[in-house]
């Protein structure tokens, strides 16, 4: 969701081209970088560094390449080095913040982003990332302020509005969440996630008819997409489960599981719907899959315990009950 902005990369490329001389290798690196071939660019930049020319910004660019390649651990020391060398460069701090965020070092990430904003307060992408970090740290008021600032700086960015909607939804400010998702749909009418989450929010607001319409629409829209998203099926499946339409719920959740086999929520909810349908063997399989995906989640084990007890298998029930309790106790309060 948060890729380095094209502008940043372009600026770096321009700078790289102008400062590393006219070597063919440098030019090749620029070409690779501009073509988003970060793997090749990284290889060339690594060679430049190994050849004893690690001057100037090459470590920074290599760090950015690593970030884009998902080699975040390797990116971090390079970006830290860059922040020492270029402490007045807002982009450096942003990339360091992004790297720290991906490494789940949220305090360090927030510090880096604040530093970036102190140098250049006009960066919507920095506010957006800062907002996400505040959400993770449960600093919801700060997150809200950051997203709103990002929206002010980039009013057509539907992703920021979407994130704000998700924030409101998660903290129970459902009216505001609905407003935000409505706005997303003005900016991006085919956003199936906004449709689905707006439906879920309407459900929470007691607007059943609107919820049904939106959730059904999100699933239909999704079917026209070249790369269908699992979220509409998950949200619709949960909604149907709450409405006690369990067969339909299970079908939607099965579809979500096909589209995103590694999504924990999907397997938990599928297991729950199947359990309520008394399709206990199928429910067990779905819940075992969920337990594999996240052994520390209490829900699959709790539901598995219920199934075992109802099937008269006390030993199995006790085992999963203990695991569920253990997982719950291990969760941070």
């Amino acid at each position: 969701m948060f890729r380095n902005s094209v502008n940043v990369v372009c600026a770096l490329i321009v700078w790289l081209g102008s400062t590393t001389g006219s070597s063919a290798q440098s030019q090749e690196a620029v070409d690779a970088f501009s073509g988003a071939d970060y793997s090749r660019a990284a290889g060339l930049l690594e060679r430049e560094m190994s050849e004893g020319r690690p001057a100037n910004r090459i470590p920074l660019f290599l760090g950015v390449c690593y970030l884009n390649l998902g080699r975040t651990e390797k990116a971090l020391p390079l970006l830290l080095d860059a922040s020492d060398r270029f402490p007045e460069d807002a982009e450096v701090w942003f990339n360091l913040g992004l790297c720290s965020f991906r490494l789940r070092k949220f305090d360090e990430a927030a510090d880096a982003l604040e530093k970036s904003l102190s140098i250049n307060p006009g960066q919507p992408q920095v506010y957006k990332l800062l907002g996400r970090i505040h959400v993770v740290r449960e600093a919801y008021s700060r997150a809200e302020r950051a997203f709103i600032k990002a929206m002010q700086l980039s009013p057509r960015d539907s992703e920021t509005v979407y994130l704000l909607g998700r924030l409101y939804q998660s903290i129970g400010r459902l009216e505001e969440a609905a407003h935000a998702f409505d706005h997303v749909l003005e900016l991006a009418p085919d956003s199936v996630r906004a449709q689905a989450y707006l439906g879920t929010v309407y459900f929470g607001l007691g607007k059943g008819a609107e919820a049904t319409e939106l959730l059904e629409r999100s699933v239909k829209t999704n079917a026209t997409m070249s790369e269908p998203d699992f979220v509409p099926h998950l949200e619709y499946g949960i909604y149907l489960q709450r409405m006690d339409r369990l067969e339909q719920s299970a079908a939607q959740l099965q579809k979500a599981a096909e589209l995103s086999p590694s999504n924990l929520e999907t397997w938990v909810e599928l297991g729950r719907s199947l359990y309520r349908l008394n399709r206990l063997d199928e429910a067990s399989r779905a819940l075992m899959k969920a337990a594999e995906l996240d052994p520390k989640d209490s829900r699959p084990h709790y539901l598995l315990a219920r199934i075992c007890y109802e099937q008269g298998d006390k030993r199995c029930g006790d085992k999963h009950a203990r695991q569920a309790e253990w997982n719950l106790d291990s969760q941070p309060h």
Binding site: R272, S298, R299, H301, Y302, L303, R306, D318, A324, L328
Partner: peptide
Amino acid sequence: GMEAGVAYTDSARP
């Protein structure tokens, strides 16, 4: 409570 199924709802959270 756990065995009987009343410790939590089936959301498995208090």
